[in-house]
């Protein structure tokens, strides 16, 4: 059985009809507790329906639009970030090439092409050579760095590098994660 008090909100909304309504009204006439509840509910309804709608401080729209513009600018930066990374990698790569002295043979191949097939073959060969030399250089540099470090410093050093990379990533790629609702 439903407790009669539970019907009071529906009664206040005028949702009770016929028998149920009569049943509750009879009960309200004799039960002081439910009578109290009815008046308290009535009061709550009044309090809430008279409460004003709070408005934000003036200039709200401008503040939202300013934040929006900021976000958009950051989004645009995020979009060009991969290109920036690619360009900087390419520049480093070229710098490395010129340091190792590998750029010259490339130029000479391109400057005096024989036949097209020969050129392609030559380029492929050069490419493989360059790759091998670069890999050797990298491994040499890495080995030299790691060898020069005392073994105790190896771990802190890697952490430092990792930390720097994370800071860099945080600064450049500040993309807000897509939020699903």
């Amino acid at each position: 059985m439903v407790h009669r008090g539970e019907l009071i909100p529906a009664y206040l909304d005028g949702e009770l009809v016929g028998e149920e309504k009569q049943w509750l009204e009879e009960h309200l006439a004799v039960c002081a507790r439910c009578g109290d509840e009815l008046s308290a509910l009535h009061e709550v309804g009044l309090l809430l329906s008279e409460a004003p709608l709070f408005s934000p401080q003036p200039g709200f729209t401008a503040r939202v639009m300013a934040r929006l513009a900021q976000k958009e600018a950051r989004r645009r930066l995020t979009r060009v970030a991969p290109a920036l990374v690619a360009v900087s990698l390419l520049l480093t790569f070229l710098a490395l090439l010129s340091v190792v002295g590998l750029l010259t043979p490339w130029w000479s191949t391109l400057a005096a092409p024989a036949t097209l097939i020969e050129l392609g073959f030559d380029l492929l060969l050069r490419f493989m050579q360059t790759g091998t030399t670069l890999a050797q250089t990298c491994s040499f540099l890495l080995g030299a760095t790691l060898g020069a470090l005392p073994p105790g410093l190896l771990l802190p050093y890697s952490f430092l590098m990792l930390g720097l990379m994370m800071v860099w990533a945080r600064l450049v790629i500040r993309a807000p994660l897509p939020q699903n609702n």
């Binding site: 539970e6 009071i8 909100p9 529906a10 308290a40 509910l41 009061e43 309804g45």
Partner: peptide
């Protein structure tokens, strides 16, 4: 809504 209002009424009392 009904339950919430009853809780509010209780609170008001």
């Amino acid at each position: 809504l009904h339950r919430a209002r009853r809780m509010l009424a209780q609170g008001l009392r």
